[in-house]
Design a protein around this nucleic acid. Structure first.
Lengths: 143, 143
DNA sequence: CCATAAATAGAAATCATTTTCATTTAATAA
DNA sequence: TTATTAAATGAAAATGATTTCTATTTATGG
């Protein structure tokens, strides 16, 4: 039988390659977001030959396909996170440990209402991301 | 008497220089967000000698001081917008003409509530930005 | 007007990300 | 299974936005 990740790739019309499976496995194992460089380092433990562009390309493609998510970071670099939740939702990101957690809150209805009423505009999409300190980091740092 | 922009700079403990005044004037005159490169092009119409790094530095400093705002863009490049509204608020960005408009809606209360209740975490900040089609662009494109 | 720290220009460096292209591989049909 | 072919990959090189460096200029306070 095929793995969950193979099914994911097929669903995106992407060929099932060992590299892609590994990227998905690596990301889904992490509770924190990773940079392409970091994914590459982890890939190097598994493959004798693995190019950084391959990692960049696949992260981009997987992200476009919705299998993984980009994290919005103040440094404007690329970071990815794999989250099982397929519903529309947003993320709480810990600024200390980079843990990503889902938040279900989304003001879409209110936003659409304000934009259409006040600005007479049409909403196409929105980004919402919350930065803070996760529970683990709060507990670790209390005196 | 000193200009509003001079006052802004002094408030940020930044020396009042012609370049900085021009950057503020250029940005505040636009209803759309600009890239550093674009600001530079406009600066070159006013100064015989103006370096791109100066534009980058000042946009960064003005942004850190809160005099201007960074726009979150999918291409992850830097874009700035000058908005008079000093209250905490978010922006509606037109994907066609790059116009930026304020939206007052902000789910901060609900977000803080969910994060503290469900995740037992602490919210430090959040970004919310709405993409869509502004009223002018809707009207221009209707058949 | 002077002194001095800050700001600037210009050139160069940085470095994350992307492109190129030759080679390999997964998917599909025979 | 094997042949076919489009897609995926590696390695090297390119790209280009952004930052750094350093000598010079300038704004500001006295």
């Amino acid at each position: 039988m095929e793995s969950e990740f193979a099914a994911t790739l097929k669903g995106l019309n992407m060929k099932v390659t060992p590299k892609r499976l590994a990227i998905l496995e690596i990301l889904s194992k992490e509770s924190i977001y990773l940079s392409p460089e970091e994914v590459w380092q982890l890939m190097k433990e598994r493959f004798k030959s693995i190019g950084l562009p391959t990692v960049y390309r696949n992260l981009e493609d997987l992200s476009n396909g919705g299998a993984i998510t980009k994290v919005i970071h103040p440094d404007r670099k690329l970071y990815y996170f794999c989250c099982r939740n397929q519903e529309h939702h947003h993320h709480f990101v810990c600024v200390f440990c980079r843990r990503v957690e889902d938040i279900s809150y989304c003001g879409n209805k209110e936003i659409v209402n304000e934009v259409s009423t006040t600005l007479k505009g049409k909403v196409l999409s929105h980004v919402l991301q919350v930065y803070g300190i996760c529970n683990s980091c709060i507990n670790e740092n209390e005196s």
